[in-house]
Amino acid sequence: MTDQAIEIEGLVKHFGDVRALDGVDLLAEQGQVLGLLGPNGAGKTTLVRVLATLIKPDAGTARVLDFDVQHDAAALREQIGLAGQYAAVDENLTGLENLTMVGRLYGEPRRSAKARGMELLERFDLLDAASRPTKTYSGGMRRRLDLAAALVARPPVLFLDEPTTGLDPRSRLSLWAVIEGLVAEGTTVLLTTQYLEEADRLADTIAVIDHGRLIAEGTSDQLKDRLGGERLEVRLEDGADPHLAVAVLSAMADEPATVEDGLVRLSVRERHGVIAEAVRRLSDADLGVEDLALRRPTLDDVFLALTGHVAEEHADQEEEQAA
């Protein structure tokens, strides 16, 4: 038994002509949160479905807690919980009936399945809605119930496929707190997301995936460091010529500055003295500055640098259509 919770090697999955997974290698240690970050259609959901024993890979191997997803699927199912982006609860059953059903399908007697259901409903702040059909639940409540259903058997490994997609900010924050609580208890979590902020906040390690390939892996800081240094952002006063600003600032860095919507951006190696020098150069050129700031690159910058396109948070292409 290794201390790796998830070991993936050379995983390939086709849907017709589409290579949803194109040779993915990935490791996740026990007790960690691995964030799988990528736009819609990148292959995140396919990867989760392979790990959750829902589909078989065409090539490569995947082991979860040392159980092979193909050969030990039945035993593996005892160890995992899955919560998907489409809250998979029965709309016509109440919250408690849903959780009791899942518990009984894990082989629990009715009475203890019900007790466990009540415990989870209390934990997820759903006790008041316990005996209401879930079709009356809000989006956030459904996601919490879906997550509760994944936790019925206290699985040591949890797969969360875009757990907060489509949720309002408040529900998202409350779901994040719940996930952080689970991690604190030692659950290994594989989380897919297209929200950079979410990966940044929850994940210990982030794997960036695009077109079925792993294009980068590391902690959030490591990924940001790969972009090298800090970002200087300058917003000029109205009437100041941004191209002149680009000309005077570019000498400060290896790469020329860029300008977009009147915002001048520059990657700098060193933080030290940058602001003072920029202000001096801009005022020598007689350019009025409205705002000027140094900031660490965000995961958005990382994504843009790695893939050549911005993370499509509202991409129209659904991953499912590739299936």
């Binding site: 998907g84 399908l105 894990y106």
Partner: peptide, 13 residues
């Protein structure tokens, strides 16, 4: 369509 089959298939049932 609603993904409930996925839930069932991920259970040891």
């Amino acid at each position: 369509r609603k993904g409930l089959i996925d839930r069932f298939r991920s259970l040891p049932m």
